[in-house]
């Protein structure tokens, strides 16, 4: 696979990559979370802490519940009939499943990027401006223009599209569309960005660009990425959680998971025995 590895220099010093218990307050934390689709249990008793400024990767074989768990983090499962979540998921110490929690506000704080790029069939400008507009983040055209430019710059797309902001977002290439979706998520100024296999529909060059982008973004946001590619998890993440059959088998520093896994199942998966 062709990749540009992010320079190790941009990573946080190893000392800061301490365990969840080391005093860093987690941005999000899940306690005994189980997710059911009707009678079927997709996620079984998962507890995890997610830190700001880290990229956390969820890896595991297909159907292991990692995407389901990711979607529980911003309540996207609410749209699926029959889906039910047990346990507690806290964002800054506040249970996101408590009654009275405003889902719209939650999703503005916890953004999401999907597997398949899904820009709106509107102009590039409108794609970005939509979120700030519905949340009232900009007053006047000038401010909105500034947000659009800032978001596109952060997503590394500005130089490529600045002269054709009025073109349709769907006319871009797949990789550009995915960066547009990331820019769209950034535009509402979230605290956490969830990415559900963001590169699985992209070619290696576009994948490399997205990975670079993730590395640049992690300074500002807590990023959670679900991926099928173990190399990708190793390249972009500082924390890795291994899921298997709905359970979280192991969670720790990415370097530890890949070089020195505690669990036999993790080791088998990483070395390609199944998955």
């Amino acid at each position: 696979m062709v990749t540009t590895l992010p320079a190790t220099a941009t990573m946080l010093p190893e000392s800061e990559l301490s365990d969840p218990q080391s005093g860093l307050i987690p941005k999000m934390s899940a306690r005994s979370v189980s997710v059911y689709y009707g009678a079927k249990q997709a996620v079984d008793d998962v507890s995890i802490d997610i830190q700001t400024k880290y990229v956390t990767a969820f890896i595991g074989p297909s159907g292991c519940g990692k995407s389901t768990f990711l979607r529980a983090l911003n309540r996207m499962n609410d749209t699926i009939p029959g889906a039910r979540v047990d346990g507690e998921i806290m964002l800054d110490g506040e249970d996101i499943y408590r009654s009275g929690m405003d889902v719209v506000h939650l999703r503005a704080r916890v953004g999401m990027v999907f597997q398949k790029p899904n820009p709106f069939p509107k102009s590039i400008y409108e794609n970005i401006a939509y979120g700030p507009r519905i949340h009232g983040l900009a007053e006047g055209k000038a401010e909105l223009d500034a947000i659009v430019e800032k978001s596109l710059r952060r997503a590394g797309l500005w130089e490529e599209v600045k002269d054709r902001l009025a073109d349709s977002g769907t006319a871009l290439s797949g990789g550009q569309q995915q960066r547009l979706c990331i820019a769209r998520a950034i535009a509402v100024d979230p605290e956490v960005i969830l990415m559900d296999e963001p590169c699985s529909a992209l070619d290696p060059i576009a994948t490399a660009k997205i990975e670079e982008l993730i590395d640049e973004l992690r300074g500002r946001y807590a990023i959670v990425i679900v991926t099928h590619s173990m190399q990708q998890a190793a390249r972009v993440s500082q924390r890795t959680a291994f899921f298997h059959l709905g359970k979280m088998v192991e969670y720790g520093k990415t370097s530890d998971i890949f070089t020195n896994p505690r669990e036999e199942r993790t080791k088998d998966y990483i070395t390609g025995r199944y998955g």
Binding site: G111, I134, A185
Partner: peptide, 23 residues
């Protein structure tokens, strides 16, 4: 209408009514 469009709008915090009438 592709469900991905609904997901995209919901994920940036559009309310269900906004999803329906804007997208």
């Amino acid at each position: 209408v592709p469900p991905s469009i609904r997901d995209g709008a919901l994920a940036i915090g559009a309310s269900p009514v906004q999803v329906v009438f804007h997208h």
